[in-house]
């Protein structure tokens, strides 16, 4: 077992585009849940809407990357409106059930064989990043050990995380953010003070959903393929784990949470594989080692929620609920 390599891989995982995508999507969840108290259990659906909208507009319409991006954001906003209209006036758990159902509807629809021509069915769509890669300002070469496109994906992903992280931070210290936090604490009281709670919740839902769509792009562009299997409910729950890991009503929380999530996954996987490799775990096969990690995620989610709901680094006072 080479601990140096295991460690290096974990560090690499920490800054990978996938981690950036998780961070961005979890930031969206922070806007939803951490700041507004909205239970969005369909963030994977927002990511799917974003990635599919981009891929489909690029492949089927031959749209340039920026049109694709625009369509992705418009589609995610429309999706948020569609979910918000029936549920935002109802109790919180209705939104939870509707968002998780809507995310599954998206996944079923892009998987169905009757739409294979449009969505590529279970195989998904591939080959939509060429135009986007033309943006790459880095000439071929080695950047911190990454090739030019690889470095560009990281630059793009983390650039978005930084810009939107800053945006959320600014928003949440504005009077607008104050109303959101008020809604999180007590919706009725905010209404009694003359604020249109419904509109605020809708704005929050659209913004966080937009982050999800962008996260979908950050997630799929480096792969150049979008497949329905990647957007199951488990993705949403991993994002929630990231959010709770870092602390939910802070800007840095979801970002750090996503990094931590992937570092721990990478470390456990590689250490388990290493141990299996040297024959230390005869009762475990490699695929079971992979499953063991997910058991860990589930248990971590429970323990976090029970013992440290403010997140590993969070401050108890920032806790959104008790």
């Amino acid at each position: 077992m080479d601990f140096g390599e295991i460690f290096n891989e974990a560090i690499g995982e920490m800054v990978s585009p996938t981690t950036a995508a998780y961070a961005l999507a979890a930031l969206g969840l922070a806007v939803h849940f951490g700041y507004s108290g909205l239970l969005n259990f369909g963030q994977a659906g927002f990511m799917a809407v974003g990635s599919y909208a981009f891929a489909m507009s690029t492949i089927l319409l031959g749209a340039p990357w920026w049109i694709g991006l625009l369509i992705a954001i418009v589609a995610a906003s429309a999706f948020a409106l569609l979910l918000g209209i029936p549920t935002l006036r109802l109790r919180a758990d209705y939104l939870a059930i509707v968002t998780i159902a809507a995310a599954e509807i998206i996944r079923y629809v892009v998987t169905t064989n009757s739409l294979t021509k449009v969505t590529g069915s279970a195989n998904g769509l591939a080959g939509f990043r060429q135009d986007f890669l033309r943006l790459n300002p880095f000439p071929p070469g080695n950047y911190l050990g990454y090739s030019s496109p690889d470095f560009f994906y990281r630059f793009f992903g983390w650039g978005l995380v930084i810009i939107f992280g800053l945006g959320v931070w600014l928003l949440m210290r504005s009077p607008w953010g104050r109303v959101l936090k008020g809604i999180r604490e007590d919706e009725l009281a905010v209404r009694s003070l003359g604020k249109n709670v419904y509109a605020y919740k809708m704005q929050s839902l659209v913004i966080g959903g937009g982050f999800g769509a962008l996260a979908g792009l950050v997630f799929t562009l480096p792969r150049d393929v979008v497949q329905p299997a990647n957007y199951g409910t488990e993705l949403t729950f991993f994002l929630w784990t990231c959010l709770l890991l870092g602390g939910m009503s802070t800007v840095l929380g979801p970002v750090i949470g996503a990094m931590l999530f992937w570092v721990v996954l990478s470390l456990t996987q590689n250490i388990l594989f290493g141990l299996i490799g040297v024959g230390a775990l005869p009762w475990l096969n490699p695929s079971q080692a992979g499953q063991l990690r997910y058991i860990l995620v589930g248990v971590a989610l429970m323990l976090l929620m029970i013992f440290r709901p403010q997140g590993v680094f969070g401050n108890k006072k920032e806790l959104a609920f008790s």
Partner: peptide
């Protein structure tokens, strides 16, 4: 006015 999203930033 800062309670409007468009002004918040």
């Amino acid at each position: 006015p800062g309670e409007k999203l468009r002004n918040a930033l």
